[in-house]
Design a protein around this nucleic acid. Structure first.
Length: 497
RNA sequence: GGCCCCAUCGUCUAACGGUUAGGACGCGAGGUUUUCAACCUCGAAAUCGGAGUUCGAUUCUCCGUGGGGUCACCA
């Protein structure tokens, strides 16, 4: 019974480079479905094209998945009952299948050279015909083909597509899709180097691995009739097909590396949270209802369903991802966030700052900054001044904006008063610091805001910073007063122009 | 170009054939405020076009149009 069969799905990338968000979203949806259905999620490496193999790609793929919390139940590193999980290690299976197809009259050897085929296509195109294999070896005597192959002549094996009628299949999302067989040519199933093409390989493997749902990008729709024919010719059961939408680049075309980060691990480096990217990827192209969009992984494994995927390709809304990342940063459990912050600062803070990073300090400043950043990469520049006893005094121009324009003397005075008023403070806490400084401002007949901004620059070194008084409390009395005095002195030595 | 898929605010999307077409990001206005954020309120913003079917189409059908995919000894 189909209904009672175990759900087994797979993610089957080829190791040609880093997986970008489009392919990883595909993996993510597939994984969610496996979890929801209490099935198995298999990772299989489709390395049948040795010319495109990229060193380290398998590791990058695995690391991308791991970073997102997508664990496979069977795969190249952990094995499983249907291994091996590298197609390059299953060559004999494809060869056997191809030979069986020849035996049964579904396939034949083709000795056309690449040059010959290229020439053929050029002629077709010159004649304004669609480029396609013309079947020149389709009726070549089997005995002769056998002889030439045995003699070591290079050849490929092609599938003999039916030339009449049509092939239909049902897609979970799109329903019935039909192609005229005459539109399809005799495609290669086994290459001259003995490796299979994708068409043969995945049909053989998906069957051998008992894959119940073939999930893949919609770009595969046009070759699905070939797969249907292959499944049938081999006597295999047709799986359920799910051709999911793809992600479009910001330019409307295919996702391109020119526009910002593209690879999953780049998002990690840029300071996105795994949970946030996961959530975001899950809901671009899928929705539960008309209002929910924040989901934990666990919740998603309960409510997600492949059949609810959107049919149309989606753009990648980078801005919304950033918003969502900020949201996760704000809502995360504080202790978890502290440890993420520490980790990030270890990595991002300038080398001069001694390691290990002071955990207690990070814990203190976390509440001050967590809602001020969208990306972890923004953290170190925002909090750097907490970690060094010796910030460089900002340039005069930094201080003399707005109310203080051309008033370096006044600014210097104001800071001097602040330092003096702050010095006797016994209980160094944000509230008292604020009160003291408000008094100072009043005394100087200066608007508090203008006055605070001056102090902010002196203490933090920047015009934009975490809340001033809380920051000052953390930095400590002595250091704050030093910085303010230093700023005051530097301003006094400036002549207004 | 042939074939195939798709079509709701700028973007991601929701809507048993009956809703003032909903939400979110972003954007604009206001509020809050020591900077920046965050937060709150309000606002602008969409059913690609044309025929049908129907008492009634975002929804079903057809035709256009637009976008995307695919036509390899790549996946």
């Amino acid at each position: 019974m189909q209904e009672t069969e175990k759900i087994r799905v797979r993610f089957a990338p080829s190791p040609t480079g880093d997986p970008h968000v489009g392919v990883i979203r595909q993996a993510l949806w597939t994984w969610l479905y496996a979890k929801k259905m209490d099935g198995q999620f298999i990772l299989r490496i489709e390395d049948t094209d040795q010319t495109r193999y990229v060193e380290g790609a398998v590791e990058r793929i695995q690391n991308s998945l791991k970073w997102l919390g997508i664990k496979w139940d069977e795969g190249p590193d952990i094995g499983g009952p249907y291994g091996p999980y590298f197609q390059s290690q299953r060559k004999h299976l494809y060869k056997d299948a191809a030979e069986r197809l020849i035996e049964d009259g579904f396939a034949y050897r083709c000795f056309a050279t690449p040059d010959e085929l290229r020439e053929m296509r050029e002629k077709q195109q010159a004649a304004k015909l669609p480029p396609r294999y013309d079947g020149r070896y389709r009726n070549y005597p089997k005995i002769d083909a056998q002889k030439r192959a045995a003699a070591g002549e290079s050849c490929v094996i092609r599938f003999a597509m039916p030339q009449e009628g049509s092939t239909s299949f049902s897609d979970l999302l799109r329903g019935e899709i039909t192609f005229e067989n005459k539109e399809l040519d005799d495609f290669v199933i086994l290459k001259s180097d003995g490796f299979p093409t994708y068409h043969l390989a995945h049909v053989v493997d998906d069957t051998a691995m008992k894959i119940s749902h073939v999930t893949r990008g919609e770009e595969w729709i046009p070759s699905t009739p070939r797969h249907v024919q292959l499944f049938n010719a081999l006597g295999y059961k047709i799986p359920t097909w799910v051709h999911a939408p793809v992600i479009l680049g910001p330019d409307g075309g295919k996702l391109s590396k020119r526009h910002g980060a593209k690879f999953v691990l780049e998002y990690a480096e840029e300071g996105y949270l795994s949970d946030a990217l996961f959530n975001f990827l899950a809901i671009t192209g899928w929705a539960l209802d008309d209002h929910t969009e924040i989901f934990s992984r666990k919740r998603l494994t309960e409510v997600f369903d492949l059949k609810d995927l959107s049919k149309n390709p989606s753009g990648f809304d980078q801005t919304k991802l950033e918003w969502m990342n900020g949201l996760y940063l704000r809502e995360m459990e504080e202790d978890d966030l502290v440890s993420i912050f520490v980790q990030r600062l270890e990595h991002d803070l300038p080398a001069e700052i001694p390691r290990p990073i002071n955990w207690a300090l990070v814990k203190e400043l976390t509440p001050l900054v967590r809602e001020r950043i969208k990306l972890l990469s923004e953290l170190s520049s925002l909090v750097g001044f907490f970690f060094t006893s010796d910030i460089p005094t900002p340039a005069t121009e930094e201080f003399l904006t707005k109310k203080w324009k051309d008033r370096s003397g006044d600014a210097s005075e104001a800071l001097k008063f602040t330092a003096n008023d702050l010095e006797p403070l016994i209980d160094w806490n944000a509230e008292d610091i604020q009160q003291t400084m408000r008094n100072t401002a009043e005394k100087l007949e200066t608007r508090a805001g203008d006055f605070f901004s001056l102090t902010r620059i002196a203490v933090t070194g920047t015009r934009v910073s975490p809340p001033l008084f809380e920051s000052m409390e953390i930095i400590g009395q002595e250091l704050c007063i030093n910085r303010i005095r230093r700023a005051s002195n530097s301003l006094r030595n400036t002549t207004d122009s």
